[in-house]
């Protein structure tokens, strides 16, 4: 039986080493580049002829934009309009990365904590910058709420710090684990198809169902990743916490 984790192996395509730091172009980087090209070309081609009565391509692109705008309206309200470009990029990159990873011989970069973690770190840094910009020094009351008895501080400060640091990690963990699990399941069932010979049609049907389910999960996880990034942004801006 083949190793189901083999599909997540990073392979160097273009080895690059600068001062001992490995910045090789890998299969993961290649898939990210392909995702960006697919999204860029797709959006450029669909929005080539902009008309009041949209073509199918234009309607598709506009519906994604509307969807992202809805998410921002729900979480950040009017103030969030300036983040539409950022959140749109996030959503499209993650969702297309998830979907393109389902193709045979492709690589799911969203199943890697390093790739998703970097994206989450961007959100996290933006979160802190916005928090300080909007609330000034009172942002640091997140760690030590006002009116807190001094003897409680050694307990509350580490708890609040961990709770803040956990935000990008929970975003990363949720997406990476969901993507990995689905792909492992597909691979394991795929090996059963050959191993069970005549009765191989049973895992084949199951595999087909799981592929459909994976497509749903790919989009759902991208949605959850996006909406929670917005929720964390709104928490940083608002004065509630």
């Amino acid at each position: 039986m083949e190793n189901p984790l083999e599909q997540f192996e990073i392979k160097k395509i273009l080895p690059l080493d600068i001062n001992g730091i490995d910045i090789s172009f890998t299969n993961s980087s290649l898939c990210m580049v392909i995702t960006v090209i697919v999204v860029f070309l797709g959006l450029c081609l669909s929005l080539r002829k902009r008309s009041i009565v949209p073509t199918m391509g234009q309607a598709f692109a506009e519906s994604i934009y509307d969807f992202v705008q809805d998410i921002i309206g729900e979480t950040l309200g009017k103030e969030g309009i300036k983040f539409v470009a950022f959140v749109f990029t996030l959503f499209v990159f993650v969702s297309f990365g998830n979907l393109l990873g389902l193709f045979p011989y492709s690589f799911t970069f969203t199943s890697h904590i390093a790739a998703v973690g970097t994206l989450s770190m961007f959100c996290f840094i933006l979160n802190i910058i916005l928090g300080i910009k909007h609330r000034g020094l009172s942002y640091f009351h997140t760690f030590c709420p006002e009116g807190l008895p001094i003897f409680m501080a050694p307990l509350i400060i580490p708890v609040e710090t961990l709770s803040l640091l956990a935000k990008p990690f929970s975003l990363t963990l949720r997406l990476a684990i969901n993507m990995s699990v689905g792909h492992i399941m597909l691979k394991v069932l795929g090996t059963f198809i050959i191993a069970m010979q005549f009765f191989g049609f049973i895992p084949l049907v199951a595999d087909m169902c799981i592929i459909m389910f994976e497509m749903f999960i790919a989009l759902l996880q991208a949605y959850i990743y996006t909406i929670l990034s917005c929720v964390y942004l709104s928490q940083a801006i608002s004065n509630e916490e």
Partner: peptide, 8 residues
């Protein structure tokens, strides 16, 4: 994830 992440 909200529960698991801070522990990890």
């Amino acid at each position: 994830a909200e529960f698991a992440a801070p522990v990890v």
